[in-house]
């Protein structure tokens, strides 16, 4: 099979498998340097695809993620926020992921109260768990796709940068 034919074939199968979604969510993921960032790296190294709209901000530890950072991301127009850290008992900073879990669980409840429920998830994975990263990113993307755009987008007056 020639190169061009192969290309067309890949393209058509992909296109038929996944129709273009009605809208494109933007998802921000906070990843800890030691584990989940490594999992995302490994997903890339292993050429495992996940939705292109999931974009990563690196933090030293999930324990560094302030609930206010999540709120800021939503205020800036993110449709969903992922906070990811190391597995239990495997946090590079011993207890960071426990603190993060506690904070994010509380924040998730608060977000529900103000009409932004379901836009935050907290997941734990080791640097070797590329599969879990891809699965988490993909399923959260689908979830947000269904949930619809972040209502706060309407209040953000204009784009700051094209």
């Amino acid at each position: 099979m020639s190169q061009s034919k192969l290309k067309t074939k890949t393209k058509s199968t992909q296109a038929s498998a996944k129709p273009k979604p009605a809208w494109e969510p933007r998802i921000v993921s906070f990843c800890c340097h030691y584990c989940s960032y490594g999992a995302a790296d490994l997903a890339g190294t292993s050429k495992m695809a996940y939705p292109v709209n999931v974009e990563i901000i690196r933090v030293p530890c999930s324990g560094r993620v302030d609930p206010l950072h999540v709120i800021e991301a939503l205020r800036e127009g993110a449709d969903g926020v992922m906070v990811t850290g190391c597995l239990k008992e495997q946090c590079h900073f011993v207890t960071g992921n426990y603190h993060a879990e506690k904070r994010m669980q509380k924040l998730a409840k608060d977000l529900e109260d103000i009409g932004l429920g379901g836009r935050l998830i907290f997941e734990l994975m080791s640097a070797g768990m590329a599969g879990k990263w891809v699965e988490t990113a993909s399923s959260f993307y689908e979830h947000i796709l269904e949930l619809g755009p972040n209502p706060l987008r309407r209040t953000k007056p204009e784009v700051k940068c094209e």
Partner: peptide
């Protein structure tokens, strides 16, 4: 960094 990442998101 958050602001920069989402700077192209707006109402329109």
């Amino acid at each position: 960094q958050i602001e920069g990442l989402l700077a192209n998101v707006g109402a329109t």
